[in-house]
Design a protein around this nucleic acid. Structure first.
Lengths: 191, 191
DNA sequence: AGGTGATGACTAACCATGTTAGTTGACCGG
DNA sequence: CCGGTCAACTAACATGGTTAGTCATCACCT
């Protein structure tokens, strides 16, 4: 049998994305992706460098998609309103794409894979540009951006991991959490 | 060959802990654990219910250890000092036991495994008792404890995942992050 | 039109891992 | 001393990743 289907890298990554978002990142295997595409596992090597390569492609897609969504969400906004929009969009992305979201951690080291490292830090850059517009003391901007990132990521990660035991409203808790951090950031702004 | 070594559940879980803390949670396999113990993989079934059972035992150990350390760390302290001690101990645990720490997520659903769910929520209980002593409005205590948990977990998770790109001092960023949340909590305390 | 080469799928084979079944030798209580 | 239990074992099988080698199809070039 020769060339039967018009399989492309896009198709492979798309299929893997669907599996990851539906059944979790660990459900991705060459076997499951190949099966979804109606193809045998070795055929995937024509498009992707093994399982590791597939995961890498998935991470690229995740970084690019999230960065694009965040850039869109902040359009026309500045200051705390922009930060709130970014946090909400970030959380929404994680809800809609839990599998892609999981590819962010652990991050590759800059030595191992500088290209992928840069792609995964793209979303952070969007937040950074909003913060510099707010005229924060340069000495404290890095800890503050880390605090915001930690709070948002931590909340989403716990939420996705079903780690909040109590039935109390989770949306409200998210608002409380990010407002707490954003207010603290605003109090150090000179804009 | 019959009964040769005095292998116990403790030995198995201990070996798995060492592997997980050194090489990551995903490095745990029955093969790697058995090899470390000088035993064949099927022998482990005499002590543990397969790989899933081993991971479950590891999660129990993680929950118990962290809860004990946190209870110790808060001894004699109250209020914001207690919260700061808890956060520091939590982070220290994650640094010393990254493999055990990773077992906390994703959490099992209460329906699937109520026993393990309870064990993993034990550390949260320690924080809860400190907060109730601080006399916080019961309506806002749940969002606040979630904010604190999200910030601390998020920070540690990003840190362990090498996701902080910049070389800026990480200890200082941690202090900034948790002080930010703890100060907000303190401002709502009536104690 | 027909030959040629690249493409992209395939089968076969190998290795590692998890798991089950059945076996065997050592210890322990009667 | 004898019999049962326990805890290790070997054998066998399934699944998944990977490599090597095969072969049909398509595009292009003469």
């Amino acid at each position: 049998m020769g060339r039967k289907l018009g399989l492309t890298l896009e198709h492979v990554v798309e299929a893997a994305t669907e599996i990851a978002d539906r059944d979790g990142l660990s459900a991705i295997s060459l076997a499951s992706v190949a099966s979804k595409l109606g193809v045998r596992s070795p055929s995937l090597y024509n498009h992707v460098d093994g399982l590791a390569g597939l995961r890498r492609q998935l991470a690229f897609r995740a970084g690019g998609l999230l960065a694009a969504e965040m850039a869109d969400s902040v359009d026309g906004l500045t200051g705390t309103a922009a930060l709130r929009a970014l946090a909400a969009q970030y959380r929404s992305f994680a809800h809609r794409h839990p599998g892609l979201y999981a590819t962010f951690l652990p991050a590759p080291t800059p030595d191992d894979d500088p290209e992928l490292t840069a792609a995964l830090l793209e979303p952070v850059g969007v937040v950074g540009s909003v913060l510099t517009e707010m005229d924060i003391d340069p000495l404290t901007v890095v800890p503050l951006i880390r605090a915001l990132r930690a709070a948002v990521h931590g909340f989403v990660d716990l939420e996705l991991g079903r780690s909040f035991g109590l039935p109390d409203d989770i949306d409200e808790s998210f608002t409380t959490t990010i407002d707490l951090v954003i207010d603290a950031i605003a109090s150090k702004s000179n804009a």
